[in-house]
Design a protein around this nucleic acid. Structure first.
Length: 232
DNA sequence: GACCAGGCACATC
DNA sequence: GATGTGCATGGT
């Protein structure tokens, strides 16, 4: 069964339902654009609580800096980000991103972020270890440009509430937002943050959705609320 | 002790 | 081009 595409009105009402429940989220959890870039790589398939420990290690060593990380040996970097898991692959991926920043932009993120979104995205995607979600997270939350981030929470929440088909790919989910609601950085930033909030609190492990603001909103309005889908 | 978490690249068919 | 696999820690 093919689902009809949600309207502007519907998506905004959905957003407002989340906003009313959670309040403005003020995302991403990071003190600087560079920290957002590092966090975006470290959080790949990893709980944020573990990422926070790795970031704290880097901060404690004053290593949250492109030039410091550029000079750091692999073993040392891997050891510092160990709590985030996959530390060997992530140390390489982080280094690949740092290489782009330092070697092509003299360590200056403003330089990296200066091109139009499409060009910036291509640059980020050319880095081995930076996929669509990581690139888009950096573009939205570090560069402050309007692109919608599609992550596990986004898919899960949309799927669980019957708004997309199972297996809908990244580009299709992203296009759903881009073609429906305005290209606005602040809106995309908070919308995604709201989705993460509801995904984290209500659509993760719990077998039922009691108290979920989306359930309240969607009942009688959505293609069908689908309780009980946990995990991926 | 099993299961899961804000992916990604690579091998194989 | 679809599907499977390795990477790894820490919380529930």
């Amino acid at each position: 069964m093919k689902k009809s595409k949600p309207s502007y009105k519907f998506l905004m009402a959905l957003y407002n339902a989340l906003l009313g429940h959670f309040g403005v989220r003020n995302w991403w959890p990071g003190d600087s654009p560079f920290e957002v870039c590092v966090g975006a790589v470290l959080t790949q398939n990893t709980a944020w609580t573990n990422v926070a420990k790795a970031v704290a290690n880097l901060k404690a060593r004053s290593a949250l800096d492109p030039f410091v990380l550029y000079r750091m040996p692999h073993e040392e970097l891997a050891e510092m980000i160990r709590p985030a898991g996959y530390y060997n692959v992530k140390a390489v991926r982080l280094r690949n991103l740092i290489d782009l920043i330092v070697e092509n932009h003299e360590g200056d993120l403003k330089s990296l972020f200066s091109p139009p979104i499409h060009e910036l995205r291509q640059q980020l995607l050319s880095v081995k270890g930076v996929g669509k979600e990581t690139a888009d997270s950096i573009i939205l939350y570090a560069a402050g440009k309007p692109i919608f981030v599609v992550d596990a929470y986004t898919r899960r929440v949309l799927l669980r509430h019957g708004l997309v088909e199972d297996g809908t790919d990244y580009d299709a989910v992203q296009e759903l937002f881009h073609s429906t609601i305005p290209r606005d950085t602040a809106l995309y930033n908070d919308f995604h943050a709201q989705i993460v909030a509801v995904g984290h609190h209500f659509c993760r492990r719990k077998p039922v959705c009691g108290g979920c603001p989306l359930q309240v909103f969607l009942d009688g309005q959505s293609p069908g609320h689908v309780p009980g889908i946990t995990g991926k």
